[in-house]
Design a protein around this nucleic acid. Structure first.
Lengths: 334, 334
DNA sequence: GACTTCGATGACAGCGCTTGCAGGCTAGAA
DNA sequence: TTCTAGCCTGCAAGCGCTGTCATCGAAGTC
């Protein structure tokens, strides 16, 4: 900054004021400083300015992994919004129990960011407490946190509409497939299942527990087993609703392997509108992952700037049913 | 830190030395300081220490987007390696020309990270020069940069083996499909195509330009058009090799829509071993994306610590052909 | 016993930036 | 002309740490 000041023939104070856009700088000086800064391609040393201001110019994101469609889409939405705000993105991906314990023990984000976005991360009460006395604003993304700024979709309502679509097509025996990883069930499972069950109840159908099935994560043949179990029931389902598109893709593969035609014999519906859903012709509930990321950043900025009510604002984004070729009326005779 | 010093009855220098584990502190003093620090739950302000040491404890990553299988997998590999090294991850996703110009204009990473990883990012000479006088170590990932630390796979060799597999199955007319986005062809296209052509030449086959086709990114019906064109040739291909798995998935969908059976009428081979490739039964060339990320961080640490030769080390990771159901001998009569 | 050596600690000068305060300058008012 | 009021701009004091150098005693050496 001293270099810029020298080149522009002013003091560092003036350079600082100019670069931060304070209005007390004359137009001519401002122009000179900006030219000098550009010529030297000056980039501010955030450590120094944070030391004085207490602001880091960085936003941290905590997520359970980095390689899922939803999370990388959400990040994609955040990136441009952050760039526009001149904020940098710090990513903490905490995918196993060991990393998780370490993260909450050391809290590396402390004093390294102006806010922490917690994305699709089911916190234990103890973890929640740890984050609370981190002394930095928290924003919850893709999950609802009472009394805290949150951005999410209404999973229950979306799932309700999904099941309703299947009911409207004439299905009466509809299975629900959910998944879990080593950490346990994902945040959304509970709400999506609840929506599904509510739709069934609304239609006056009785809940049949044998039609709700849990399939372990990517590895293994869990899906084939699940399909086998469902298809050997006394009265097999005519439609399958999966908690996520990823699960639906695996399901479609397992059904193909089992020579069960879709949607001829069974209909399949997913949840997410993963990029591949269009390619696979999967009927699904679109959730605006990118938009969720963008909105989360907007809310985060409001929280950092301490705007009115931002500290407890809840933003619910809409979901849409996207009908494609994987759903159809049940085969006649059902 | 002053509080801790006061409570422990020592100077801040001693607290600093203790907390950084320097050996010139007596055991009794160390114990007193550590107790005081714990009681006050002291957390160091990294901005302050970076300001004096010049180290930020952060590594920046520059990538063309965040939502592709390859890039998010690479990030997944980096995260644990960074955590282990006590480094934080700063992500710059630069996906359109506007953002790109802005990034190279402002160079926000300058002085805000200890190294910059350039991942799958085809730099123009001017951009390359900009990064060079950034004054921070550069590491190239998934791309080869002469004279610079790089971690990548041998795309040409991998593609050569892929085409060889098809040749060995008996195919003689093999099409190659590549893709591009608004920025132009991806880094890897050129090398993969080169490997493909070399395999053909090695087999004594003449290169037929009508069998190399470019398909635009995700949107539109480019794939259907490409399939139509290929399948209406005088002598249509019996095998299709795509530059990426993503492209192969779209191809499979287009072929299914066109009632072309795979692998009955045509074989399809991808490149990447995307998670979905297993689900789709796609034969492909596996590239170790996660491992690439992990290795890149190891190399980055060496470069930051200025280890011998790290500044120009090249690490080439292996690729593997993964045969699945989408490839088979050509239909008889070809 | 006088001198050297060395381990342990404290004092202090920054690192690059922000910000309160003082001061110079210009212009309009008296 | 003199005075007052604004505008701009520079000065200088830190922000919380690190690292150099000086200091001080205790232990070792002859």
């Amino acid at each position: 900054m001293a270099d810029v000041a020298h080149r522009a023939g002013v003091s560092v104070s003036t350079v600082s004021r100019t670069l931060r856009g304070l209005s007390t700088v004359s137009d001519t000086t401002r122009a000179r400083v900006e030219t000098a800064a550009r010529e030297l391609s000056f980039a501010i040393t955030r450590s120094a300015s944070s030391l004085v201001t207490g602001r880091t110019g960085r936003v941290a994101v905590l997520m359970p992994n980095l390689a899922s469609w939803f999370l990388s889409s959400a990040l994609s939405g955040m990136a441009p919004a952050l760039r526009e705000a001149g904020l940098d993105l710090l990513v903490y991906s905490v995918s196993d129990v060991h990393e998780r314990a370490d993260f909450f023990d050391r809290l590396p984000a402390r004093r390294n960011a102006d806010a922490l976005l917690v994305v699709s991360f089911a916190l234990t009460p103890a973890e929640r407490a740890r984050l609370d006395d981190l002394g930095m604003p928290l924003v919850f993304v893709s999950q609802h946190a009472p009394g805290r700024p949150s951005v999410y979709v209404d999973d229950e309502d979306a799932a309700l509409r999904g099941t309703r679509h299947l009911l409207n097509l004439g299905h009466r025996r509809i299975a629900f497939l959910q998944t879990f990883d080593e950490t346990g069930f994902a945040w959304s499972s509970k709400n999506r299942l609840a929506g599904h069950l509510r739709a069934l109840a609304d239609a006056g159908l009785e809940h049949d527990p044998s039609l709700v099935m849990s399939v372990p994560g990517w590895k293994g043949s869990g899906m084939a087993t699940a399909v086998g179990r469902l298809m050997s029931l006394q009265a097999p389902p005519t439609a399958l609703f999966t908690e996520t598109d990823d699960l639906a893709f695996r399901l479609l593969a397992a059904l193909r392997a089992a020579n069960v035609s879709v949607p001829g014999q069974v209909s399949v519906m997913g949840f997410d509108d993963h990029v591949m859903a269009g390619v696979m012709g999967l009927t699904t509930l679109a959730q605006p992952a990118v938009e969720l990321g963008r909105t989360a950043i907007a809310l985060t900025r409001a929280v950092i700037d301490d705007s009115d009510g931002a500290h407890a604002r809840h933003i619910v984004l809409p979901t849409e049913l996207v009908p494609r070729g994987s759903t159809a009326p049940p085969p006649t005779g059902n």
